[in-house]
């Protein structure tokens, strides 16, 4: 139960971080924090239910998160090279 509360807290910290931070890399790290909070929830639920599904799912989530890092960093790199900035506030050409 305590682990679930911890995972909810971590998830919330991640979600708030995504909303308030400006640097795209930090925003992205906050998303990763959310995914890891989810992993913690899966593993503790797995323990609670006494089946292994949750632990297996955690592995899948890790792999998917790694793939996401690859794509995400490539995109952030591309925009950093052309703008010299990775702030999400500077990327404001598309609006209204």
């Amino acid at each position: 139960m305590n682990y679930l509360i911890l995972s909810a807290i971590l998830f919330t910290i991640g979600a708030v971080g995504v909303l308030v931070r400006r640097n795209a890399i930090v925003v992205f790290m906050c998303v990763e924090l959310m995914l890891n909070a989810t992993n913690l929830a899966f593993v503790s639920f797995s323990h609670q239910h006494g089946n292994l599904d949750g632990q297996i799912i955690a592995f899948f989530v890790m792999v998917v998160a790694a793939a996401e890092v690859v794509v995400g960093l490539a995109i952030i790199m591309a925009i950093f090279r052309s703008r010299r900035s990775s702030s999400v506030d500077d990327a404001n050409l598309l609006k209204y």
Binding site: G14, A15, A24, F28, V31, G72, I79, V88, L93, L94
Partner: peptide, 19 residues
């Protein structure tokens, strides 16, 4: 620049929602 900006926005929001 518009295209890259679209990619960053889609990526960050998409990753956020999949979390």
């Amino acid at each position: 620049l518009l295209s890259q900006e679209a990619a960053v926005k889609y990526f960050l929001l998409g990753a956020f929602s999949s979390a």
